[in-house]
Structures are given as structure tokens and as C-alpha cells.
Amino acid sequence: MKFVKYGSILLITFVAVVGVAVPMSATPQSWLEFPLNPMLQQKARNIFFHVPVAWTTVVAFLVGTYYGYRYLKTKNIDYDIRSVSAAGLGLLFCTLATVTGAIWAKFDWGSFWNWDPRQTSIFVLLLIYGAYFALRSAVETEEKRGTLSAVYSIIAGITVPFFIFVMPRLMAGLHPGSKGDPDGAGPVVQFTMSGNMFVVFFLALIGFTLLFIWLLSLRVRTARLEYAQSIHRS
């Protein structure tokens, strides 16, 4: 766990410093210059934070659903504790991804919210987390609470492929790689990363994933203590 803790701190600090400090130029000469995207300008640096946070959201959702599935199979309350801890972190990262994305959208697409397929997906994910915690607070016995919320998160997981594969076909998008916007409401930014940007981006992905693992282990350990205390009291 020490490796995870210091690794995430080190990598995220490195990404924050390098991602902000390395100059951008239209004709990058050396390894220490990022290419300047004419449409995104300096705002392109957000890719080192926004995308890894969104990636961590997906990881948290998968981890939460996986532990929910394990709980259904074993009925071991520890899996429920892990599942709900992952879901709590998922909500945190989902909010961060929404906020960083909305700010970026404001300055590149003109408004905070455009109902782009991925914005719609993250909105639905926020709703799913909201519903998940509403459901948990509505069930009193812990065994039933674990079972019902695990079933709900798996049912919600069934709809995820539709958001990834179907939504982009149904509606026009603005994210890079979308099918384009026929109404001309905003430009689809063509964006490919250069080699050195990709290294920083990849390190950011690892850094945020490690941060998630570290935070998850912290939350699981406190939740276990709280659970033991509640057993002890009753």
C-alpha cells in the first residue's frame, strides 16, 4: 500500500507540474515542448486531468459492481463494505469529471452543457449514483441493503454498453472522435496527442488509478471499523 500511496502522490504531482509548466508551441522543436492545438490552445492541458478523472469514474463503477456481484455470491458483508466505498469514490470522481468537463466545455464549445453523448452518459451515471444511495438509505436491514443495491448496480451496469455504443449513433457529439455535428452548433475538435503528451497523459492515468486504490483502501478500512463499532454497540 505504501507503493500505491507514494506512487499516486508522486505521479499526480509530476503531472500537475509538467502538465502546466511545459510550454506549448505551434512548431515543437524539442521533447520539452507540447504542440499547440489551434482550437484548444492552452486549454488542451485539461486533458491530463479531465480524462484520467473520467477514466477513474469508470474504474470505480466497475469495481463497485464487481464487489456487489461478489456480495450476492458470498453474502459476506465485507464485500458490501467494499462495494459501497467504491461507489462513494465513484460519485466523487464522477462529480469531478462533470465539473472539469463542464468548465472545459464552456470555454471550447460555448456553454457548460451541450447534451453531447458523453455528457449525457456522465449525467446518467450521476443519476445512477444518486439512485443507488437513495436506495441504500431506504433499506434498514444490512443484508437486504447489500443485496438490493448490488442488484441495482448490476442492472444499471447492463445499460452501460448502450451509452458507449448506441448513444453516439443516436445523437451528434462534440468530443473528439464523435460523428460530427450537422447543425453547426459547435466544432468537433480534432485532437491527437504527440508522444511527450501521451507519456504525461499515461502517467496521469496510472496516477489517478493509484489514487483511487489508495482512497478505496482508506475508506474500506474506516468503514470496517465503523461497522465493527456498530456491531459492538448493539
Binding site: 446518467v124 439512485a131 437513495a134 436506495l135 431506504a138 433499506v139 438490493l148
Partner: peptide, 19 residues
């Protein structure tokens, strides 16, 4: 199986039904 059934139902259903 939950306690507050009436209000919970649309809250749980909407994210699933949105697609």
C-alpha cells in the same frame, strides 16, 4: 423490499430507462 416505495420508484427507474 425497500421502505419508501412511492418516491423511490421513479428515482431508480429513470437512469435505467433513459436509453
Amino acid at each position: 423490499k425497500a421502505n419508501t416505495r412511492g418516491t423511490l420508484y421513479p428515482v431508480l427507474s429513470f437512469p435505467i430507462l433513459i436509453v
